[in-house]
Design a binder for these strands. Structure first.
Lengths: 214, 214
DNA sequence: AGTGCGATGTTACTAGCGGTAACAAGAGTC
DNA sequence: GACTCTTGTTACCGCTAGTAACATCGCACT
C-alpha cells in the first residue's frame, strides 16, 4: 500500500524539517534575526533550494522557528498563570517567569519580538502587515482568557478582559525590554514595581508638594 | 566673508534636506517601511547618491524621518500630560491623545514602531541592536519624568517612576496596536478600560465563582 | 532484469537591494 | 581664466531572496 509508504516518507521529511529548524536556530541565535538563508543552509550542511522546498520562503522558515519558541514560552507562562495561588502571587510569578525567560535567552527574545521584517528581495516579502509580533498577540489573548475565566468583572467582562490582557502583556514587554537593556534593578524589584502598578498604587499615591495645578 | 556664504549654503542644504525628507515621507507612507532608497530618490526627482550624501545611509534617513514624527507626537502628548487637571483626567486625556494619533495616521505609526530593521545589504546594516523602537523609549522616559515630578511615591521614587513610565507606555502601545487591528470597541471605551486597569480595578475585583483554587 | 516516479540534492542563474567610485557641470572667489 | 565647492549623474560592487534546470538515489511495479 502506498499509505505506509507515504507515512514513512512523511516521517523522514518531518525529521529532516526538525533538523533544519535546529540548524536555523543555531544561526539565528548566533547572527541575529537578519541571518541569511545561505548561512542557514550552510549550517545545516545543505544548499538553499532545500530550505525553500521545506519552508516555502524566508517568512515560512521564520514563522516555523518562532512558533517553536513561542509555544515553549507560552507553556511555562501558562503554568505560572494557572497555579493554585492567590491573584497577586500568580501575577508576580507570571511576571517573574517571563522576565527570567527573556533574561536567560535574550537573542531568542529579540528574534521573537523583532523578526527582521523588511524582506528586501522582490515583491514576495512575507506580509508583515498585522503579524508584526505574533507572540505578543498570542500572550495577550491567552492572558485575556485567564482573566475572563477567573476574575469577576461584571458586565462587559469579556471585552474588558481582552483590553487588560493585551495591556498587561504590553506593560510586561515594554518594561522587560527596557530593563534588559539598562538593568537598573534586580528582577525581583522590577516584578514588585510592576505588580504595585497593577495593584493601583498610581491611584493611591498622593500628589507631590507643589499642588495638582502645577 | 565666508561666514555669510556658509550660512547661505547651509540654509540651502537644510531646505533641500527638508524637501528630501518630505519626499521620503510620501514614499514611506505609500509603500510602507520597506520603501527602497531608489524609490525615495525617484520620488524626490533625483538619484541615490544624493540621498546618501545627505543622510549617510538608510538608517540615517529613517532616523531623521522618525525624529520628525516622534517629536510631533511627543509634543501633543506633553500637552495632555501637563494639563492642569486631576490625575485621572490627565491619564485619560493622554491615552486618548495617543490613540487618536495612531488612529489618524496608522502608517506613520507602523513606521515608527516597526521601522524595517533588517537591512540586508553588506555588513553596513545600521545597528538595530538596542534602538528597536526609539519612540517607545523616549515616551517611557518622558512619562517617567512627569510621574516623578508630580506623584509622591516615597523613597526609591525615581526608580519606581521609570519602571512605571516604561510599563504604562508599553501598555498603551500594545493595547493600541491590538485595538487598531481589531477595532473591538470605541476609543473612549478603550481609554476607560485602560484607566480602570491603572486604577487598580484588577486588584479590587472579586474572584469568579469556582473559587481561587480552580 | 528494466522502467518509471518521487524525493533529495546540486549548480547556475535572475532581479533587486544598499552603498560607492568616478566623472560632469554650474556658481562664486581670487 | 584657474580653483574650489556643491550638486548631480552613470556605472558599478557585493550581497540578498528566490528559481529553473539538471543529476542522482531508492523504491515500487510489471
Amino acid at each position: 500500500m502506498d499509505t505506509t509508504q507515504r507515512t514513512d516518507q512523511q516521517r523522514s521529511a518531518d525529521r529532516r524539517r526538525r533538523e533544519l529548524l535546529e540548524a536555523a536556530d543555531r544561526v539565528v541565535l548566533r547572527d541575529g534575526p537578519q541571518a541569511s538563508m545561505n548561512a542557514i543552509a550552510a549550517e545545516a550542511g545543505i544548499t538553499k533550494p532545500i530550505l525553500y522546498r521545506h519552508f516555502g520562503d524566508k517568512g515560512g522558515l521564520y514563522a516555523a522557528l518562532a512558533k517553536r519558541h513561542t509555544d515553549a514560552l507560552l507553556d511555562s507562562l501558562r503554568a505560572a498563570l494557572d497555579a493554585p495561588a492567590d491573584r497577586r502571587e500568580r501575577v508576580e510569578s507570571t511576571l517573574a517567569t517571563y522576565l527570567a525567560a527573556i533574561e536567560a535567552r535574550p537573542q531568542v527574545y529579540r528574534f521573537l519580538m523583532h523578526p527582521a521584517e523588511g524582506s528586501t528581495g522582490g515583491d514576495h516579502g512575507f506580509d508583515v502587515g498585522k503579524h508584526s509580533a505574533p507572540l505578543l498577540r498570542r500572550m495577550g489573548e491567552e492572558l485575556a482568557q485567564v482573566i475572563e475565566e477567573r476574575v469577576d468583572l461584571g458586565p462587559e467582562s469579556q471585552q474588558l478582559a481582552r483590553v487588560w490582557g493585551h495591556g498587561i502583556v504590553g506593560m510586561m514587554h515594554a518594561a522587560g525590554d527596557w530593563w534588559l537593556g539598562e538593568r537598573p534593578c534586580s528582577r525581583a524589584e522590577l516584578v514588585r514595581s510592576l505588580a504595585d502598578l497593577l495593584w493601583g498604587r498610581l491611584a493611591a499615591a498622593g500628589d507631590k508638594v507643589g499642588g495638582p495645578g502645577f
